[in-house]
């Protein structure tokens, strides 16, 4: 299960909406081993694409250095799908390299039959996707 504060939830949603129609991406870092998302870090989508995202390579290095210095890890890795449901694509699965992270997908497609704005969370380990419950809280 992913437990996340309403404030962080809202920040992810706002970022996804702001970058629409391109995919938005980012990380919520937290203390190593605690599984608690704390620090919201929106990233630039270097691909600037409606169908693909990739962290800029220099930004990626800076991010990991910073997390290392602060004893943090990427608790959440999030990105948006702009025209499809919030479910990991084959691309998402093949590039998922953080088995300890919650992969959050939001869909800014809204409309269609998909219903309201989707915010879903998954574990992706060795190509296997497991959806998990998202619990939104006021504070930890």
């Amino acid at each position: 299960m992913l437990t996340i504060t309403q404030a962080l939830f809202d920040q992810i949603v706002a970022h996804a909406r702001q970058d629409h129609p391109d995919e938005a991406c980012g990380v919520v870092a937290g203390p190593v081993g605690k599984g608690r998302p704390e620090r919201f870090i929106p990233m630039l989508n270097a691909a600037r694409s409606p169908t693909f995202y990739e962290f800029d390579s220099q930004d990626l290095l800076k991010l990991y250095r910073e997390m290392d210095d602060r004893d943090e890890e990427p608790v959440i890795i999030y990105h948006s799908h702009t025209a499809t449901e919030a479910y990991p694509s084959r691309t998402d699965i093949s590039y998922a390299n953080e088995p300890g992270a919650h992969y959050v997908l939001v869909s800014t497609a809204d409309a269609d039959a998909a219903g309201p704005f989707q915010f879903r969370s998954y574990r992706i380990v060795e190509g296997e996707v497991t959806e998990e419950e998202v619990k939104v809280v006021e504070a930890y």
Binding site: E54, S57, Y64, H81
Partner: peptide, 12 residues
Amino acid sequence: VTILPAVAGGMA
């Protein structure tokens, strides 16, 4: 030398 897998994906 630092090795880091890209953080990438998307619906494509």
